[in-house]
Structure formats: structure tokens, C-alpha cells
Design a protein around this nucleic acid. Structure first.
Length: 280
DNA sequence: ATACGCCCCTGGTGGC
DNA sequence: TGCCACCAGGGGCGTA
């Protein structure tokens, strides 16, 4: 579910209530996530002092004083729920893990489909965690450039849509933002990655960065179960140009008969959306 | 090495 | 109303 902009938004929400705070209580309600929750997670978190947050791809890293980092991945349906002090609501369904700060804020990790995970890794060398080690460049970072992307695409005979979903190529894109970025770059999702000319790669880098930055500014995209930790809705879904809009007129096209509108087809088992007129 | 299908799991939706 | 098929923002694994 959550892609980079949603994960970034969740991380900021977590940081607002946890950074610089002490976790006075940690409770594991059910540990059967994508990989089992490590037994030492609860004792490590209890009394833990939260000293830093960062994001890597779709992973949130929460650093504790004492040299441990907690890794979060939200999977497809994971979300974080912040509850203000004094509110006496029981944990919602599918709440796997619950933290509480000295101030009484509660942080719940809810994940119905259980594709998410949490783990612990030593802060020193946290990037070497097996789930992080192979990640490609951060799309919003300086290291993500047209030459770098071009090098990753060179020789690849897979559709560009599928390659961009590979977290080793660039870290953080998912099904929504790949479709949106390809639309902005005017590249057809079925184009073979290795055959995209330099100008296309350059447009793609710009499109990816702009799409993600705008989505973060909007608080991510809210659909189905995703909300920001404080319950606010992201609103980037209203800015989608092609994702989920099969049959709708393309935002930049004159309409029929010159353009039949947004089309949908399936690649590697996932829906792709594009404009048949503008994307080549 | 690369690429594809399948699997993991639950819930919402739309059609009949 | 009820049931069912299908779809969904994730990734990993086994097989060609």
C-alpha cells in the first residue's frame, strides 16, 4: 500500500510524537507479520529513548539510544495510528504492536493483511540489514541522476514499468507513482527499459522526483485504509492523472477521437494506467 | 543473471 | 440480502 510519499508522511507523524520521547510501554498483540516479530523487540523498546528517524525506500528506521534501530515496513495495508493521552479506546482490530510514551501518547501499528514487518538492527551499520542492503538510490536524493538511472536500465529487456517497481533500481516507487511518473515523462509503460533514449531517462528522473515531492507535500494518497498517523487524510489521490482512472479523459489530451482516454492493462500481475496518445 | 508466475493475507466492492 | 469473483498501495521465492 504505502509507497514512498505515504511512508515519509507516516515517519513524520511518528517523529512528531516519538522523537526525543521515552517509550514507557510496549505491547505485542500479535507477532505473525511477514516475518516473525523478534522476541527481543518489546524488551528493547520498553524504556527506550527515541533519538532519531529516517526513511530508506519504503522502510522507516527508528533509532533508539543505546545503539538499536527499529525497522518498520508497512507492506500493503499497514498503517500507524496515534492516540492522544486520555483517550480510552481499545486497540483497533489488527493492531499488532502498541507503544506508549511517558506523555501518554499511544502508537499502534495496524496491518490487516500482515505483509508488513518490524525488525531490530544495530544502528551502526543499519544500512547493511539484508532488507536495506540491496536498495537502489533514494529518488529524492542527489545520487539519483539520469546517468545513474540510465546505467540501471541499460540492457534490460523488461518493460520500464516493471523495472521501476524493482527496489534495487530506485527505492520507494510503487504501483501508483510509477504510473504517474511514466505519464509525466510521456513514456509508455511497456517500453523496454534498455531501449529508452537518454532524453527519456532524463525526463523520467525529473518526473519521478516531481511526482514524489508533490505527493509528500499533499500528505500522500489516501484510499482504502491509508490515513496519516493523526487521522488526517492525504489528498494526493485527487491529483492522480492516470492511476485508477481507466476510461477517464486524459488531463492533457483534447479528447476523442484523438485520444480515447486513460487505458489500463496488466503487467507482471499489476495494473498499469497510461495515456495511449502521449506515452510512447 | 534475469524474468515471470505464484504465493503470502484480509477486506471492500460490484455483479448476479 | 447473499454469495462470489475479483481487486488492492507490498515483497519474496521457485522455476525456467
Amino acid at each position: 500500500m504505502p509507497e514512498l510519499p505515504e511512508v515519509e508522511t507516516v515517519m513524520r507523524g511518528l517523529a512528531r510524537r516519538l522523537l526525543g520521547r521515552v517509550i514507557t510501554r510496549a505491547a505485542l498483540h500479535r507477532g505473525d507479520l511477514r516475518r516473525p516479530v523478534p522476541g527481543r523487540l518489546v524488551p528493547t523498546l520498553t524504556g527506550g529513548d527515541v533519538v532519531g528517524f529516517r526513511r530508506r525506500g519504503k522502510y522507516i528506521l527508528m533509532r533508539l539510544r543505546g545503539g538499536e534501530t527499529m525497522l518498520w515496513h508497512l507492506g500493503m495495508s499497514g498503517r500507524v495510528l496515534l492516540t492522544a493521552p486520555g483517550a480510552n479506546a481499545p486497540p483497533p482490530a489488527h493492531c499488532h504492536l502498541e507503544l506508549e510514551t511517558a506523555e501518554g501518547w499511544r502508537v499502534g501499528f495496524i496491518d490487516p493483511r500482515r505483509f508488513g514487518l518490524v525488525d531490530l538492527v544495530p544502528t551502526e551499520g543499519e544500512e547493511a540489514h539484508p532488507l536495506l542492503a540491496g536498495l537502489g538510490p533514494e529518488p529524492l536524493g542527489d545520487e539519483f541522476t539520469a546517468p545513474v538511472l540510465a546505467a540501471s536500465l541499460a540492457g534490460r529487456r523488461s518493460p520500464i514499468k516493471v523495472v521501476l517497481l524493482d527496489q534495487r533500481v530506485v527505492a520507494g516507487l510503487g504501483n501508483i507513482y510509477v504510473s504517474e511518473a511514466l505519464f509525466r515523462a510521456r513514456l509508455h509503460p511497456a517500453r523496454l527499459a534498455g531501449e529508452i533514449p537518454r532524453a527519456g531517462t532524463t525526463r523520467l528522473v525529473t518526473a519521478i522526483r516531481e511526482t514524489l515531492a508533490e505527493a509528500i507535500a499533499a500528505g500522500g494518497s489516501s484510499l482504502r485504509d491509508y490515513v496519516q498517523p493523526d487521522g488526517e487524510l492525504g489528498y494526493f489521490q485527487h491529483a492522480w492523472r492516470v492511476y485508477g482512472r481507466a476510461g477517464a479523459p486524459c488531463p492533457d489530451c483534447p479528447g476523442p477521437p484523438r485520444c480515447a482516454g486513460v487505458a489500463r492493462f496488466v503487467q507482471a500481475g499489476r495494473s498499469s494506467f497510461y495515456c495511449p496518445r502521449r506515452q510512447r
